[in-house]
Each structure stands twice: as structure tokens, then as C-alpha cells.
Amino acid sequence: MEGDSAGGSAKTARDRSYQAILPIRGKILNVEKASIDKVLANAEIKTMINSFGCGFSEGYGNDFDIAKLRYDKIIIMADADVDGAHICTLLLTLFYRFMPELIYEGHVYIAMPPLYKAIPSRGKEEYLYDDAALERYRRKHKTPFTLQRYKGLGEMDAAQLWETTLNPETRTLKSVEIEDARLANDVTEMLMGSDVPPRKAFIYEHAQEALLDV
């Protein structure tokens, strides 16, 4: 699965014997706000349903069957910036609302591409996956180093992408699980639903915790 401008390198990078890439252009529809026929009319969503092979819980045949899922891991791979985060929430909403078993049975993962690459003048370069790692790196390495920030997956070439994000030997994944089903439902409704005031209140309340992206 993919953000926007990196489908090509991801296809080159994967191990085609057991990895498939489905590029998704831009932001998908917010299914929480859209009507079911609009959801089903959406080309991006249709492709997703077809490629998962396990049907759909509503409309579209009502034929969801987790046994037919074609892949063991569905990995959301989005840019490591806030728009990537947004795409992530949109996709998770889709899965949660229409194919919840995918999440309940632990098939949904989120890839973690690196945020930075530190290139010291001597020695080995290192990928850093979040800001905390960058801080640690700064403390450990007093010598000056060049920092490359990855805005999008498109900035990495195929080899790098394989090494950092795709290779099952080295990659880091976040598995998405639901323990508190009620909370999951409430959160989805609040964040993605069409009722604005609760969302606004949430934003004000949590404003300080946000990691800003400039």
C-alpha cells in the first residue's frame, strides 16, 4: 500500500514473490462522512476491496469473508509527515467501518519509514525513525553530520526503501489492534464524523500534545 509519489520505487524495491504494492493517489474518501453508494463508487476503494479479495461488509455483495483474504499483512505505507498521518487515519477508518475483522484479527500494520538520515563526515550513515531518535543521535555524536529529512517516500530510491521499510528482516512495523471496541467506535465517530464541535473540543484539549510539522 502506498502514499502518492513513490509507487514506482516501491514496486522495484519489493520482493515480488510475496509482496504486492497498491499505490493510492492522494487522500481517499472519508467513509465516515460519505454515503454507502459513494463509498462503493469510489475507484480507490473498489480497487482495495478487489485486491484484498475478502469482499465487503456492506453493499457490494455483503460477502465479507476473512478466510478469503489474499494477504497476511496489509501494511499502510504513507509518508512520514502529517499528511501521511491523515491518510493513515482515513484508511484505518475505512478498514474499521467496513472490514473490521481485518483489524480484529491483526492483519493491519503501519509501516514506519525513517524520518531522517544522518550522514556523518566519517563513519556509517544511520536512519532515524523519529525525533526522539534524532535527539539521541545528537547526544551520541558530537562530530558534525549532514541531516537529510525524508518528506516523502518519493525521496528514497528503491534500495533505500527496501532496506529501511520493506525488508521483513530489518523493518519496523506498527500492528494495529483493538482492545477497547467502544472507545474505537467513539474515537472514529468523533474524529471522522460530520459533527464538528466534539472534534473542535478534542483539538483544543490536545493541542499541546501535537507534533507539529512545518
Binding site: L173, K174, V176, E177, I178, E179, A184, V187
Partner: peptide, 10 residues
């Protein structure tokens, strides 16, 4: 693999 809760990540 880092285990994360759906509502948290959302």
C-alpha cells in the same frame, strides 16, 4: 513489531 491500539493511533 510495535503493538499499537487503534484508537490511540487514530
Amino acid at each position: 513489531i510495535i503493538r499499537t491500539e487503534y484508537s490511540e493511533i487514530m
